[in-house]
Nucleic acid binder design. Structure first.
Lengths: 117, 117
DNA sequence: GCAAGTACCTACTATTTTGTAGGTGTCAAA
DNA sequence: TTTGACACCTACAAAATAGTAGGTACTTGC
């Protein structure tokens, strides 16, 4: 067995699409209803506009989100989750619960946890 | 609500402990039985020794793994999953299944997917 | 004696990800 | 007419993560 384990067990592909500082949050927010970029920016105060749009584009490319362009001017678009994205969100939920349940003991010093709310 | 969503929903803490190129794989391999570092190196051909040990240490610090030192010379240690690690592995399994199921359509060009097996 | 194995460690480099600061064009309200 | 909002875009800089190449101390087998 010389194959690479993360790929073989499925965690590789899964992490590739969901790794991104805000992708989980975006998925979660878009699940309830289609969201416009400006709306997401206001809901996630710490996200930069660049990262938001970059994440959205990648998630569309990965088939997690659909981008609907209303063709209006000024521009109006909305992102909604696809079936694939919904499935991912479903399996992510238990992970989020785990994280929440044990958040207290997971406060080791990780560089990126210094996001002061 | 000015709090930061990834933290609030639990995905923040969860990703912080499991993000690391090989952590999921390590968890999975150590679940079945305690593993020695050298054993893991052979099971995961692509991991560098530095990353392996770094990951192991972080996972111990996060309470996912236990490090047992046999106090022998030459050195012998073994890593086994804790209850917390087992819980995490449980919620990671559905995510891995999702990744496996949809691996084919998730072959977009991500930089780190160029790990030639 | 010398090479190889054990489980690490450190310095340095390269890659990847994220942040900052600016720009586009159109429109509506002040 | 200036300002702001909309949904992007780009170049550049910073930070985080991973890889490379070396070293430690000890022991066993050749």
């Amino acid at each position: 067995m010389a194959t690479n384990l993360p790929e073989a067990c499925g965690l590789g592909p899964a992490f590739r699409v969901i790794n991104g500082k805000w992708k989980g949050t975006i998925l979660w927010l878009c699940r309830k209803q289609p969201r416009r970029p400006g709306e997401l920016r206001r809901l996630i105060p710490d996200v930069s506009e660049k990262m938001l749009i970059q994440h959205l584009r990648e998630m569309v490319a990965d088939g997690l989100l659909d981008r609907h362009d209303f063709g209006e001017i000024p521009p109006r678009v909305a992102y909604s989750v696809t079936d694939l994205g919904r499935e991912l969100d479903d399996v992510l939920t238990p992970l989020a619960h785990w994280g929440l349940k044990h958040a207290a003991r997971l406060t080791r010093d990780h560089p990126m946890s210094l996001v002061k709310a």
